[in-house]
């Protein structure tokens, strides 16, 4: 029983950063923008979050710093893609390169310093339910936040007018513009939200997952988050399933390594990446599913005519 409980606890921990970053990117892509800079924003969130928590002694300041770092980088992306109509793919890549480089620079003095993990915040009563209790309801607040944000994003997209406007802009920015909606402004806000979420996801890594800073500690999670959005066909509910699937696989990989099955550790480490490829292929084969939900204008620059 204890083993299962411990196992599931780590699965939730592994899945949360993916869920957070992917939720943010989902909103961004729903507005018609492709931001490949998630990895860069996540790693900046990780280093800034860790640094702020270390220097101030308060992990919540770390959380704030992580969010702001992600948003700052996203703002840069937004200015270029919305203001200068630059190619979104290239700009996103530039963002990742910059983010990785900058994080290495900023984080040099943090290497080897111990951090303090976020305290768990058990919910009374619920956390006493056998198995589910400790796994889901005796976690640090960011886990709860991830579930809360999932619900919020779902509600926003499908039950609110601003969410409808966002989806419309992702479908046809020219029509939205003709109807008088501020396409670039909405997209910029979506980009900022995505940046904040990516930063938060990265911050979770250095503040709760493994409370330390190591260069490149995101190890491609940002890219996996991007793949998750496709896998979820841009639906928040499916995103939850996808994030947890990957979390599960990552943890299984660790346990396989520890069990000394004779499988090389590098192979187990490569499982998430291989799985991402498999998942992408599966989804792209289901063309109808993709076509039904993918925002039609994704990746295309929009320049309003006046």
């Amino acid at each position: 029983m204890d083993f299962l409980e411990a196992f599931l606890i780590t699965v939730v921990t592994a899945s949360t950063p993916l869920l957070l970053a992917a939720l943010g990117e989902l909103i961004v892509e729903r507005s018609g923008v492709l931001n490949l800079g998630v990895e860069g924003m996540m790693v900046m969130g990780a280093v800034c979050g860790f640094g702020a928590a270390l220097l101030s002694g308060n992990p919540w300041l770390g959380v704030l710093a992580a969010i702001l770092a992600g948003m700052a980088l996203a703002a840069l992306f937004g200015v270029l893609t919305m203001g200068f109509a630059t190619n979104q793919v290239a700009t996103g890549l530039a963002l990742t390169l910059l983010g990785i480089g900058l994080s290495g620079l900023v984080g040099e003095s943090f290497i080897g310093k111990p951090g303090r993990a976020m305290q768990a915040l058990p919910i009374p009563l619920l956390s006493e339910i056998p198995l589910i209790g400790p796994v889901l309801f005796a976690r640090d607040p960011l886990v709860y936040l991830s579930f809360g944000l999932l619900a919020l994003v779902s509600w926003f997209l499908f039950r609110s007018k601003p969410g409808l406007i966002l989806r419309a802009i992702g479908d046809n920015p020219e029509s939205a513009h003709m109807l008088g909606y501020p396409v670039l402004r909405v997209r910029f806000l979506a980009i900022l939200f995505g940046g904040g979420m990516a930063g938060l996801g990265g911050g979770y890594l250095s503040l709760a997952y493994t409370p330390l800073w190591a260069e490149g500690m995101t190890a491609g999670r940002g890219w996996i988050a991007l793949a998750l959005v496709v896998f979820a066909t841009w639906l928040p509910s499916r995103l939850l399933a996808g994030a947890y699937l990957f979390g599960l696989m990552t943890i299984l990989g660790f346990h396989a390594q520890a069990a000394g099955l004779g499988i090389p550790s590098q192979f187990l480490s490569s499982l998430p990446y291989l799985a991402t490829i498999v998942v992408l292929v599966i989804i792209s084969r289901r063309k109808a599913l993709v076509a039904a939900h993918s925002p039609a204008s994704i990746g295309r620059s929009f320049v309003p005519t006046h």
């Binding site: 840069l76 270029l80 200068f84 630059t86 190619n87 290239a90 700009t91 890549l93 530039a94 963002l95 390169l97 910059l98 983010g99 990785i100 480089g101 900058l102 290495g104 620079l105 040099e108």
Partner: peptide
């Protein structure tokens, strides 16, 4: 830190775009 290189490279790409 020699990581300053990466920062310059990333910035350069931004400005090129």
């Amino acid at each position: 830190s020699e990581k300053i290189t990466r920062v310059f490279q990333g910035m350069l790409l931004f400005f090129v775009l």
